[in-house]
Design a protein around this nucleic acid. Structure first.
Lengths: 161, 161
DNA sequence: GGCAAGCTACTCGGATACACGGTGTCCGAGTGCATGGGG
DNA sequence: CCCCATGCACTCGGACACCGTGTATCCGAGTAGCTTGCC
């Protein structure tokens, strides 16, 4: 029950991209900024691209940019893009097996165990859906430094220049 | 982000054990009932034993039994026994890395991303804590058959005899 | 008949192989920009 | 001076190895109950 490590990178990258004002940022820049593997981060960004969260621009001075307002991108979107939308619990319907198997026609509804898991999974996703990239960016400014986002923005501009 | 498959087995086993009235049930019986691997199920039961959820009795007519009332055993207890208590998200503090690293003394509090994840994790665990083994057993009776629990209890008695 | 010692068979427990998914990396296809020549 | 063709360097994208965790299994240690012999 561990989340893929790439999720953290993807989240941080989305926050940084929200400071770039829709200007494309190359993977190499993002990787350098976070001091992580460029190639592996590229894999995560591809997943974000496939999920429609970021838009890729090729060629010189290309890169990735958010496709919509940071306030319209939830943490859940990013998590599901990287880690998949599959539920945390996969019911194998073992009640239909064994000497006292429940007949299949009685199994139209998920069993109590599965329901509890689905409910918990829903609570988890709901919590993640509550937080947007814009929230993350705002909290970063508020909590850690006076204007990290502005500094990041400037750093991105310098690097691009 | 997938839960260990053994969690499902452990949950079902705890429900069955709640029908056994504290009488020890061997792993072989549980495995036969669910039609799953005996040896692997044994591993899960060992984890439950280590967590103090079940008590093992050795020797002839030994086996596993719940250590406390089914209403005092939550789904979360079982999940954490099998899958560990570690959080779903492991913050690697990448904000302290790279050319614009945040100084460590400013990182006394978890970052916004980590906080969102912790909050979601908490919501998930809270939901699992709400459901007990007694609830599961009751719902099994209510939803699927007239008195599955009684039948299970009788089956266990027959097998033991 | 009652009791105790020994044996048997059944139980759990931890240590040991195998497999799949995540982790990490690489090179190729595609494209926008810069440049240089011509009009 | 302006426009266009060409080349280039930089970008993403998918295909390819490696490793760790979970999956599955086995055999050994320990104990409760049955059997049997004795008192």
């Amino acid at each position: 029950m561990k989340l893929s490590g790439g999720v953290e990178w993807a989240l941080h990258c989305c926050v940084v991209l929200s400071a770039a004002n829709s200007a494309p940022v190359a993977v190499a820049r993002l990787a350098e900024f976070h001091d992580v593997s460029t190639t592996y981060l590229a894999k995560q960004m591809q997943a974000l691209s496939r999920a429609g969260i970021v838009r890729s621009t090729q060629g010189h001075s290309g890169g990735y940019a958010l496709t919509r307002e940071p306030s319209k991108i939830t943490v859940l979107d990013i998590v599901e893009a990287i880690d998949g939308t599959q539920s945390t619990f996969a019911c194998t319907e073992i009640r239909q097996r064994g000497p006292m198997a429940t007949p299949a026609e009685a199994c139209v509804k998920p069993c109590a165990i599965n329901r509890a898991m689905i409910s918990a999974d829903r609570a988890w996703r709901d919590a993640l859906r509550e937080v947007t990239v814009a929230d993350l960016a705002r909290d970063v400014d508020k909590d850690y430094d006076a204007d990290v986002m502005a500094t990041v923005s400037g750093w991105l501009a310098d690097e691009t220049a």
